[in-house]
């Protein structure tokens, strides 16, 4: 599938007296890796939280896969096909790695209380499928050997991978990663880069917030730059890098 996957129009968000997002519009094409960068406090994570339904927006619309996205509830966003990770990893600490991923299957499965109590055939089949899929995903992100460990006992890098596996379990069309390389060393960042490129090869669209400009420029097809809640550029990496407004935002007034 090609064409526009997500189209956001005039997203506005205000916290008290602070205009965190000001009429931000952007389009993400199917199958691309779309980078979102900007100085600290530029509104990247806020935009993320609006897209994924965690913050109510003040204005604007989001079209996703040709339909208006219901931004009122995060679970509806997940059901529509957007999955995310968090800047400060949020796992289910006292569940095993496998269980974390199994939770991700929730939105694509149906068994209810009575199915579970009666252990109906449908429930057992579904449960087996959930487990199989979760296992596959742990293999996919490369931490299958930690399946039965509690999430909180995983190493930092593995926790990032587990969070991605859990997000993938919701069968997303768009995977939104909030600073996945934060706190990683060079080797781990390299491995993460390979993982994200693999995701694209497998047909996933990726929205990437990242501080590591090198990673973004090397990985993304297109990059948008936020500054003080406004989009100041959206283009291929080379063009963004040369954009004087971007340079000014990053280096301060007068540096350009």
């Amino acid at each position: 599938m090609t064409g526009i996957l997500l189209e956001a129009r005039d997203i506005g968000k205000r916290f008290g007296g602070v205009q965190a997002l000001k009429d931000v519009s952007l389009t993400i094409n199917s199958g691309e890796i779309y980078g979102l960068i900007g100085p600290n406090g530029a509104g990247k994570t806020t935009l993320f939280n609006v897209f994924t339904g965690l913050y109510p927006r003040d204005s604007g619309e989001v079209q996703f896969a040709g339909k208006a996205l219901d931004l009122a509830s995060p679970h509806a966003v997940a059901a529509a096909g957007i999955a995310r990770t968090f800047q400060n990893i949020r796992l289910f600490a006292n569940m095993t790695a496998l269980e974390n991923v199994m939770v991700g299957r929730h939105v694509r499965t149906r068994a209810g209380v009575f199915g579970a109590i009666l252990r109906t055939r449908a429930e057992r089949t579904e449960e087996a499928a959930i487990r199989r899929r979760a296992d596959e995903l742990l293999h996919y992100v490369g931490i299958a050997d930690r399946a039965d460990d509690l999430a909180r006992h995983l190493s930092y890098g593995d926790q990032r991978r587990l969070e991605i596996a859990r997000a993938l379990a919701t069968d997303p069309q768009l995977l939104a990663l909030d600073e996945p390389a934060a706190g990683m060393n060079a080797t781990e960042t390299g491995a993460l880069r390979d993982l994200i490129e693999g995701l694209r090869r497998d047909g996933l669209t990726v929205l990437l917030i990242e501080h590591d400009v090198k990673l973004v420029m090397g990985l993304c097809d297109r990059v948008a730059v936020l500054d003080y809640g406004e989009k100041i550029a959206e283009d291929v990496p080379e063009a963004v890098r040369a954009n004087p407004k971007v340079i000014e935002a990053y280096l301060g007034t007068g540096a350009a």
Partner: peptide, 23 residues
């Protein structure tokens, strides 16, 4: 079960549970 895991997920981190598609 699927429901039991969802309960524990909410107990562990409600926001992550929401983002993972749990109502």
């Amino acid at each position: 079960s699927r429901i039991g895991r969802a309960w524990v997920a909410i107990r562990e981190d409600e926001i992550a549970a929401k983002a993972s598609g749990i109502n």
